[in-house]
Design a binder for these strands. Structure first.
Length: 202
DNA sequence: AGTGCGATTGACT
DNA sequence: GTCAATCGCACTA
């Protein structure tokens, strides 16, 4: 059994309150999914912050039926369907009532890789969770997990890890049009598991 | 009640 | 490199 098999959840008190700080903090942490077939986990290598007053954020125009989880206290899941095709996993941020969060954009697969391959229908390790929609598919994440507390063990949670990420890159967010110039995307510099064009990986 | 549009992906030239 | 698929939902009326 490896050290990782404990999958200790990250206590809410450990999560930075500030959205940008949380987006940085989550780089290198683990996302752990419990499925009937077994545990699936990966290391977060790419995140994006959607902050207060951010026109690109789903909480910008207030609470709606879709985005209500975004207004939960930090550390809860906000899951939604993008483009009618891809599920997106976010971690809610700030205190209750503030509609901000962090999009988890890519994972380096660690455990349950065969389960991920089954879920994704592709073989290549690099493509299993590179991109937010692929990540959600690999972990079989859907709206049923929306609102879940990610700070305790369950079907899905955030776990700490001894891993120390190398240099963390920062740049513009991918795929948005409003507030597109803000440097709110964070990633492990040089990691082949980061999404987006190569020019945005260095 | 109707409409336009995405925090993407995969297929294709 | 370009582009269509696909659908829930926010917005307008």
């Amino acid at each position: 059994m490896s050290q990782r098999d404990d999958h200790p959840p990250i206590a809410r008190a450990e999560l930075p309150n500030d959205t940008v700080a949380l987006a940085r903090f989550l780089i290198g942490k683990l996302v752990t999914r419990e499925l009937p077939e077994g545990i699936v986990s990966g290391r977060i290598v790419e995140t994006e912050a959607y902050v207060v007053g951010d026109a690109a954020g789903h909480g910008f125009r207030g609470m709606t039926p879709r985005n209500r989880s975004l207004f939960l206290e930090r550390g809860h899941a906000y899951v939604y369907l993008a483009y009618g095709v891809s599920m997106m996993l976010n971690v809610s941020s700030e205190m209750q009532g503030i509609g901000t969060g962090v999009l988890i954009r890519a994972l380096e697969p660690l455990e349950g890789i065969e389960i991920m391959r089954q879920n994704r229908g592709v073989e290549r390790l690099r493509d299993l969770a590179r991109g937010p929609g692929r990540l959600a598919a690999a972990l079989r994440i859907d709206r049923s997990l929306d609102g879940l507390d990610l700070c305790q063990k369950g079907p899905l949670w955030l776990a700490s890890d001894d891993f120390e990420p190398g240099e963390i890159g920062q740049g513009i967010r991918i795929g948005i049009s409003r507030d597109a110039d803000r440097l709110l995307r964070f990633y492990v510099r040089g990691s082949s598991f980061v999404s987006g064009p190569k020019s945005l990986q260095e």
